[in-house]
Design a protein around this nucleic acid. Structure first.
Lengths: 217, 217
DNA sequence: ATAATTTTTTAGACAAGTCTAAAAATAATG
DNA sequence: CATTATTTTTAGACTTGTCTAAAAAATTAT
C-alpha cells in the first residue's frame, strides 16, 4: 500500500514520463508537485525501495512496470471520478479536478469497479483524456493540436491540453465543447490566430487557444 | 480546516457524547480510536486551541457548538456515502462502513449537496441511523430495542445497534431487514430469547440479537 | 482518612514528510 | 579543458501524530 504522498509522487512521475522519454529529474518532479528537489530525493529513495521506480543518483527516475500500473490505477480513479461528478452530480468540467484529486486516493477496488459500471464503462474523462483500464493500459488516440490544421481542414474537438478552470470557462463561453466539428476558414500569419467555424458560428481563435485544443481529423 | 486525525477525534467524541451526558474521558476516546490516552491528551489540547472542544485537565472533554456542527457534518457525509454505496453501487449494508470511513473526509460542499440530491435527500443510512442535516441537526426517533418488547407486541424493524459485518450478515441470513414487521410470540425467561414472527416465518432470536435490533412501535 | 489503585498528564523519543543551507556532481561556457 | 553555473544530494532541523515510561492527580477501598 502507498501513502497519499507516495501516490502523488507516482502520479506526477507518470504524467512527466508520458511527455518525455528519458529519466525524470528530481527538479522536474519538484516543480510539478510544488515542493523542493531535496524532498523529492528523499521520497524517490523510498519509492525505489518499494520497487516502483528505478533511481540512480544524479540520473533521474523512471517507473518500473509495477510503478506504471500503480500510477495508471490512480489516474484511472481520478478520471472515473471526474466522469461521475459531471454525469451524475452536475459538476461542470472546470470544477472536477480538485475534488477528483481527493477522491482518487480512496482505496476500494469494488468501489471503482461499480463506479465504472454505473457510468457505463466510459473511455474518456470530461476533458477528453483517456481512462486507463484495470491493467493500466491506455487507449491513445491520434489527436492533434488545432493549431496544426491548415486552411479549410476540419476536425472533431476531442480534448484539451490545458485543463485550467480559466481555459475551460473560456471554452464554455465560446460554446466550444468536446465532440463538435471545427473548420479552419482562415489562418492569420501575423499572429497565428485562426478564423474557425463551429456550430454554424464563425469566430476568431488566438494562437494560445489553438495550441490547447485537441482535434481528431 | 481539520486534519484527517482531528476529524476522527471529533467524530469519536461526538459518538461518545450521544451515549453519555458527562465529559468524555481521554481513556474512552483512546479506546474508541484504538490509540493511547497520552496521544488523546495531546490531540485534545490541539482541538481545544481550535475551539471545537472544551478541555480542562483531568475533567474530560465536551464538544463546543462548533465542534458538534463539525462532527455532525462528518457523520452526515459518512451516512450519505453509505446510502450511495448501497443504492447506486450495489454494496451490501455490511460492506459500506470501511469505504465510508475514507469518503467522509473528502472536502467539497458541492459534492455532498449534489450527492444528497442524487439520493433523494435520504433521512437514514442503510443501518437505520439518522443523517444529520446541513446544520448538524439530527432527527432522533423513539426507537427501542427489540429485547424490550413484551409477548404479543409488534413493531417495525428500524435500525441496528451493532453494525459489525458479522451481525449484519447474520440478519441477512435470517431475512431480517429494515422496514419489516416483527411480532413477539413468546419470551423465554431462562435465556431471555424471543420467539418471533417476521414475514410469516417463525424463528427464535437470542438475547444478544434482540439487544442489537431497534424497533419502532 | 489514609493507602492502594486507576486514570490522566508530562517528558522524551520516534517515523513520515517536509524544509534550508551547504556540499558534491554534472552540465555549460569561454 | 578549465572554470562557471546549474542540478542534485546530503546533513541537520522542524512539524504532526504517535508511542513508552514515569509522574501527578483522582478515585476507590480498607
Amino acid at each position: 500500500m502507498f501513502t497519499l504522498s507516495e501516490e502523488n509522487y507516482l502520479k506526477a512521475i507518470y504524467h512527466l514520463e508520458s511527455d518525455s522519454n528519458k529519466g525524470i529529474s528530481t527538479n522536474a518532479i519538484a516543480k510539478s508537485l510544488e515542493t523542493k528537489a531535496s524532498s523529492v530525493t528523499d521520497m524517490v529513495k523510498k519509492l525505489s525501495e518499494k520497487e516502483v521506480v528505478i533511481y540512480k543518483k544524479y540520473q533521474g527516475v523512471t517507473l518500473t512496470e509495477l510503478g506504471k500500473k500503480t500510477a495508471a490505477n490512480i489516474v484511472r480513479k481520478h478520471r472515473l471520478w471526474e466522469v461521475f461528478l459531471v454525469e451524475k452530480l452536475n459538476f461542470s468540467w472546470d470544477e472536477v479536478h480538485e475534488v477528483a484529486e481527493q477522491l482518487e486516493h480512496i482505496k476500494s477496488p469494488k468501489l471503482i469497479n461499480q463506479l465504472d459500471s454505473l457510468l457505463g464503462f466510459p473511455t474518456h474523462d470530461p476533458h477528453g483524456d483517456p481512462i486507463p483500464d484495470k491493467d493500466g493500459n491506455v487507449n491513445t488516440v491520434d489527436k492533434i493540436l488545432l493549431s496544426t490544421l491548415s486552411k479549410n481542414e476540419k476536425g472533431i474537438c476531442v480534448g484539451v491540453n490545458d485543463s485550467s478552470s480559466e481555459f475551460l470557462r473560456f471554452l464554455d463561453k465560446k460554446k466550444i465543447t468536446l465532440g463538435k466539428k471545427i473548420t479552419v476558414l482562415e489562418r492569420e500569419d501575423f499572429d497565428d490566430s485562426l478564423f474557425i467555424e463551429i456550430d454554424g458560428e464563425k469566430l476568431s481563435i488566438s494562437k494560445k487557444i489553438a495550441n490547447n485544443l485537441y482535434i481528431k481529423k
